[in-house]
Simulated scan of single mutants.
Amino acid sequence: MVLGLKARPEQIADMHHRLGLDQPLWRQFASFLGTLVTTGDTGESIAYHVSSRALVMQRMPVSLWLIGCSAALVVAISLPLAMTAALHKGGWIDQLVRVVPTVTLGMPEFWVGLVLILVFAVTLKVFPVGGTQPGIDGMLYSMALPSLVIALAQTPFIVRSLRTRILDVLGADFVTTLRAAGLPERAIRRHVLRNSLLPALQLYGMKVSFLMGGTLVVEQVFGLKGVGTLLFSAITARDFPLIQAVAMYCALGVVAVSVAVEIAGGLIDHRVRGRAAASRGGAR
């Protein structure tokens, strides 16, 4: 496949030797695991002829920028929308908040991206059509449209979950007690939001984890040279070591996000820390 249909037998034998395919399977597997554990590399890329880890690390910053900006936008959009909808339950504002995000959920990401490019980049010339620009300001400027596309696709889930939880907390006894004590409404809302965040935070962590491997279409539309685009080219070229490297580092990213969400949940709700301590005590 790599050498083409007209490859000579000596070329194929040389390729087998270079890839280590002429060795016993157990030795190939042991060599692969040894390299993976010691260097974090899955082998040399078949298409690029360099370390797969080096290729992933080269493209990773762009993807991390995209994921980070998208995650921040999801929070910035979801929190005020969910709180507003819950405080106006049954009203036209509540219906609007519930309907509009659901409509955007049904739109394909590539189509939303193309529409935003036509409106804000081609017509209004506010944002770039694609690619990235140097510097922190340049990266934020370049990530505005692609991160908005991803945020619009993820926000409806968070808004729905957080709105439901806020309504449950608003009906709790401690909220009635706080209002009877004359606490300002703004302070009560802070207490309500804090007690509502945990389920939405767990769902948010799942969505951020999904973004680790779900930015392929957006990167293609906006011409971003990130891990998603690298994965697409690796699949096209059947570059298996590179595909393994992308999958492995995305999996590590998912684990890191899960740990971060667990820590954040403990900081927000002390009951999570109590359950974790009880679990450790039971294990001992």
Rank of each mutant, 00 (worst) to 15 (best):
E44I: 13
A30K: 15
K6R: 13
G43I: 02
T42I: 12
M57S: 10
V62L: 13
A30D: 14
A7K: 14
V37I: 01
R27G: 01
G4L: 01
L66A: 09
L3I: 13
C69N: 10
S63Q: 00
A54Q: 04
T39N: 10
M15K: 13
D22L: 13
A72L: 12
S31W: 06
C69Y: 11
R53W: 06
A13Y: 05
A54F: 06
A54N: 08
G68M: 06
I46P: 05
E44D: 11
S63F: 04
T42E: 07
I12A: 04
L21A: 12
L33W: 03
R18H: 04
A13W: 04
A13Q: 02
P61I: 15
E10F: 05
E44C: 14
L55W: 07
C69T: 11
A71E: 00
T35H: 10
E44T: 14
D14W: 12
K6N: 14
G20Y: 15
G40K: 11
I46K: 03
F29Y: 03
S51N: 07
M15P: 02
D14T: 06
H49A: 09
I46D: 03
G43P: 05
G4K: 01
Q28N: 15
R59Y: 15
D41V: 06
G40H: 10
L19K: 08
D14Y: 11
Q11S: 04
R59T: 13
P24K: 09
P24G: 01
M15C: 12
V62D: 08
I67H: 07
D41F: 01
L36N: 00
L19N: 04
V37E: 00
H16A: 15
L5E: 03
L66N: 08
E10T: 09
G4A: 01
I67M: 11
H17A: 05
Q28G: 13
T35D: 10
S63G: 00
P9V: 08
P9D: 06
C69S: 10
T39R: 10
F32G: 06
A72C: 12
H16L: 15
L19D: 03
P61V: 14
R27C: 03
S45D: 02
V62S: 05
L66I: 14
A30I: 15
R53L: 07
P24T: 06
S52R: 02
E10S: 03
S31Q: 04
T39P: 03
M57N: 10
Y48K: 12
R8C: 06
M60G: 13
S31E: 01
S63R: 02
M15N: 09
D14M: 11
G40A: 12
A47Y: 01
S52E: 02
V37P: 01
V37R: 02
H17S: 07
A7V: 14
D22C: 11
G40C: 12
K6D: 12
